[in-house]
């Protein structure tokens, strides 16, 4: 209710999922999901484990290949090749504009903190090293880790690793950021520092889709909440409707279990 008041959602969506389905063998994990994200929107995806929320968010940057349905980025359909082909954009192009942060950080252990952050801009965007480093140091400053730039990831705490991972994703200057349970692997006392970084991004207007079990955080930072259950979007609405004051019985049961 605080940081999203001034934004209009009337403009065309940045990223859309249309009738998305995903099956593993005979098991259908996603049963036709739709999502449309406008600039500056923060959508929280909540739901019990196995509801498909991680699979769904991973389909958005083609980390998982949907069985059926379409992903559109800036009104352009994402094809099933890495490179652009005709009218369709490649998933390589999609991923340059849509960043992702993982539950288990997945930092590159053979690279220093700074090297982790400049890897994308240099290798993928072909930016000059100096320019990439300047941006990286700025981002590391924003997540409070500029002093750790020459350390290797294994010397960092979980919370620090995750903040580096966020900086690495931001170094690509993405238009959308996907966060897949980014605090679930952290010790409880380290969750706060990561959430603070994400809250800062929301305040700056970063478009995000966030899979999380942190109900209070989801309610606080998101403009819209999607409740996934058994592969469908069972409820959607404002944080007020979904988390603070859930109407649906099953939703109320779920939220009260997680809400402290």
């Amino acid at each position: 209710m605080t940081i999203h008041e001034n934004r209009t959602t009337a403009e065309a969506p940045i990223i859309e999922a249309v009738a998305l389905r995903k099956s593993y063998g005979n098991h259908e994990v996603l049963k036709g999901l739709d999502l449309s994200l406008a600039r500056g929107e923060v959508v929280a995806l909540i739901g019990p484990s196995g509801s498909g929320k991680s699979t769904f968010i991973r389909c958005l940057n083609h980390m998982e290949v949907p069985t059926d349905g379409t992903i559109r980025f800036r009104q352009k359909t994402v094809g099933d090749a890495f490179r652009d082909k005709g009218e369709e954009i490649g998933y390589g192009t999609l991923r340059r504009h849509v960043g992702m942060v993982f539950q288990h950080f997945n930092l590159f252990p053979h690279k220093t903190v700074l090297q982790n952050v400049i890897e994308g801009p240099i290798t993928v965007l072909k930016r000059p090293k100096k320019e990439a480093e300047e941006l990286a140091l700025d981002l590391l400053g924003q997540v409070g880790l500029a002093a750790k730039r020459n350390d290797y990831p294994n010397h960092l705490s979980g919370g620090q690793k995750q903040r580096v991972a966020i900086a690495r994703a931001l170094a690509m200057q993405p238009e959308v950021l996907l966060l897949d349970e980014v605090t679930s692997a952290l010790d409880p006392e380290l969750v706060g520092e990561v959430l603070a970084v994400i809250r800062g991004l929301a305040e700056k207007g970063m478009t995000m889709a966030i899979v999380t079990h942190e109900m209070a955080f989801a309610a606080d930072v998101s403009s819209r909440v999607l409740f996934l259950d058994q592969g469908v979007i069972a409820a959607t609405g404002s944080p007020e409707e979904i988390i603070r004051n859930p109407a649906n019985e099953r939703l109320r049961g779920f939220v009260s279990r997680f809400h402290g």
Binding site: R95, F102, H104, F108, E119, G120, T123, V124, R168, M172
Partner: peptide, 22 residues
Amino acid sequence: DKGQREAAAAIGMSPWQSMTRI
């Protein structure tokens, strides 16, 4: 770990870049 390949892919690396650099 397959997370390494995913992290490389997530910043837009091609399979070749991911293999040789990560």
